[in-house]
């Protein structure tokens, strides 16, 4: 286990293993997203009460679910970076923030657009929507905090602490629809009992959730690779990599 741990801490190893995973993960992500979107948009039946506006769900639910799960990944990376001072965990933490911010933004925006024809309003200050907005500010806060420090190590520590403090928000988001009665409906997909959604809508939704998890993983690995390149730019292995790629490029040009 410790060999694996040490390997994971090595930037060149992580860079190359991420590259080989991405070669198949990105095509799978794109295919799943395309199939899920077409299924949800054109083939799933309309909802008997909401009509076609409910098709926004196939983006809204996966984006929000993965934005939340992304926070777990970020906070775990924060904890690992604080406890073991692992450089790669700090890179993962920093890479999670823009992806989480984008997915939370997508969840909030799609929710607002879905709210207009369904609730008659773009926005309500209820517990679920507000706690999701707090999640968005947490992600943006991490990005801003990294930029605010000149000392990268100090920035990493501050962001790790902020990411851990922010986990308080996660159970609030999960439980908000049960604790406070509001316009936002409670969860339709349940692990412990039958879902309250018909299979013809549930199947494309589950596919889109899987697709968004793959999107998160792909984007995380891509962001981590670029962050590794930035931090390791003066090392020998990056110099060799850059020269090898330039050699390939000029060979292709000839």
């Amino acid at each position: 286990m410790w060999t694996w741990f040490h390997k994971f801490g090595s930037p060149p190893w992580l860079y190359s293993i991420a590259g080989s995973i991405l070669r198949w993960l990105v095509p799978i992500t794109v295919i799943l997203l395309a199939v899920g979107a077409v299924w949800g948009l054109l083939y799933a039946p309309p909802d008997f009460r909401q009509g076609n506006s409910y098709r926004i769900m196939f983006v809204h639910v996966p984006a929000s679910v993965v934005a939340l799960a992304g926070y777990y990944v970020m906070a775990t990376a924060g904890a690992v970076s604080l406890i073991w001072r692992m450089k790669m965990a700090d890179i993962a933490l920093r890479s999670c923030a823009p992806i989480g911010a984008m997915l939370t933004f997508l969840g909030l925006l799609s929710g607002a657009v879905w709210g207009k024809p369904t609730w008659g309003t773009w926005w309500v200050w209820d517990a679920r929507v507000t706690s999701m907005l707090v999640l968005f500010f947490l992600y943006v806060g991490i990005i801003a905090l990294y930029e605010a420090f000149d000392n990268e190590e100090l920035a990493g520590k501050a962001c790790a602490v902020l990411s851990l403090v922010g986990t308080v928000n996660i159970p609030i988001i999960y439980k908000s629809v049960d604790w406070w009665y509001s316009l936002h409906q409670p969860a339709s997909i349940k692990f412990t009992e039958d879902s309250t959604m018909d299979g013809s809508m549930l199947r494309p939704l589950l596919l889109m959730i899987v697709a968004f998890y793959c999107l998160f993983a792909s984007s995380l690995l891509l962001y981590m690779r670029s962050e590794i390149l930035r931090r390791e730019s003066s090392t020998n292995w990056v110099r060799k990599l850059v020269l090898a790629k330039a050699g390939q490029g000029s060979a292709n040009a000839v």
């Binding site: 979107a37 098709r55 926004i56 983006v59 997508l106 925006l109 657009v113």
Partner: peptide
């Protein structure tokens, strides 16, 4: 509503 959300996505 629906197409704009898918466009932004």
């Amino acid at each position: 509503y629906v197409w704009s959300v898918y466009g932004v996505s």
